[in-house]
Design a protein around this nucleic acid. Sequence first.
DNA 1: GTCTATACATCGATAGAC
DNA 2: GTCTATCGATGTATAGAC
Lengths: 184, 184
Amino acid sequence: MSQHRTRAEQRRDTEARILAAARETFARLGYERTTIRAVAASAGVNAGLVMHYYGSKEELFSRAAKLPDDELPAGHPAEALLSTLRRRLDDEPVASLVVLRSMLTHAEASKEFRAAASGWLGRIGDAIPAQDADLRAGLISAIITGVVIDRYLLKLSSLADASADDIVSLLRPCFESLTNDPPH
Amino acid sequence: MSQHRTRAEQRRDTEARILAAARETFARLGYERTTIRAVAASAGVNAGLVMHYYGSKEELFSRAAKLPDDELPAGHPAEALLSTLRRRLDDEPVASLVVLRSMLTHAEASKEFRAAASGWLGRIGDAIPAQDADLRAGLISAIITGVVIDRYLLKLSSLADASADDIVSLLRPCFESLTNDPPH
DNA sequence: GTCTATACATCGATAGAC
DNA sequence: GTCTATCGATGTATAGAC
């Protein structure tokens, strides 16, 4: 039972399928090892069509790589940061993994990460009452990055198999000391 | 004034020069973007010679990528780990950066990192008196990895410009709580 | 010991058919 | 809207000259 679909609808669907396939492949293999042909096959279309819609591999990557600008919840900085960590431990969005996977080896991914980190670091720093707030914010960000990398990208068992609750609990004292918060 | 050198000596020198050039290039660009031609040019020799000596790009990478098996100094676990961190903050060896740069996108680098992390995590875990020692060890390792990545690979200013002393000081409470050590 | 020449595969990108 | 055909560039690897 085929649906009636305009050409525009059909195109939107196909474009979305291609983008989803691109996200999955970029997140898994990184920029260099991902080929347009593989993305096309995974989306069930032809390689030429991917180029037709997205123009270039670089443009496809840019569309696939998006970091959410984590807003910092109100309240005590340590708890706010821990709740952000909590959310990312439960399910790190694929679009984020696209950036993380390639940020060490691809300029565009590195740039995207820097841009997001820049805003993110500023907000953390503003919430920390200390003259070395920038360094403290950088350390918190580095901890989160390291944990997410080991858990989702390298899948090291000690972190990949742990519960998000346990990780958050163990890191609470770290975040409290780095944000200059008293323990509670 | 040319030295007298046997062919064997000459060969050792050239091989070493190629390996050093390979380390620098792999560390800077990662596995995929590094070309045999670029390594050869950087070493002042021909591309064919690199292949002649190392057989394949993969083999050259294996020779260039070596993680030192950090031994854990004796004493209180937290201080021992902090002194290891201290050493890595002062100068992370190029051979290590080769592994770190490509570990997210190249299987061989990932394998090398896992192997080193495995031994490393075991030693940390053994030194921590807690039933969840494995997770604690994984978190400590993730923190170090995250900090080194941000400082040396991404060069985020807040970490790249900071002094090793300041970083160690700020992370001391983190390591103490994760190793279950009392502060002192 | 080191270099030249080249085979061979892969991939991004383009042009045009259906 | 989607696919076929193909070009051109790049890079590893091999064979052999000097």
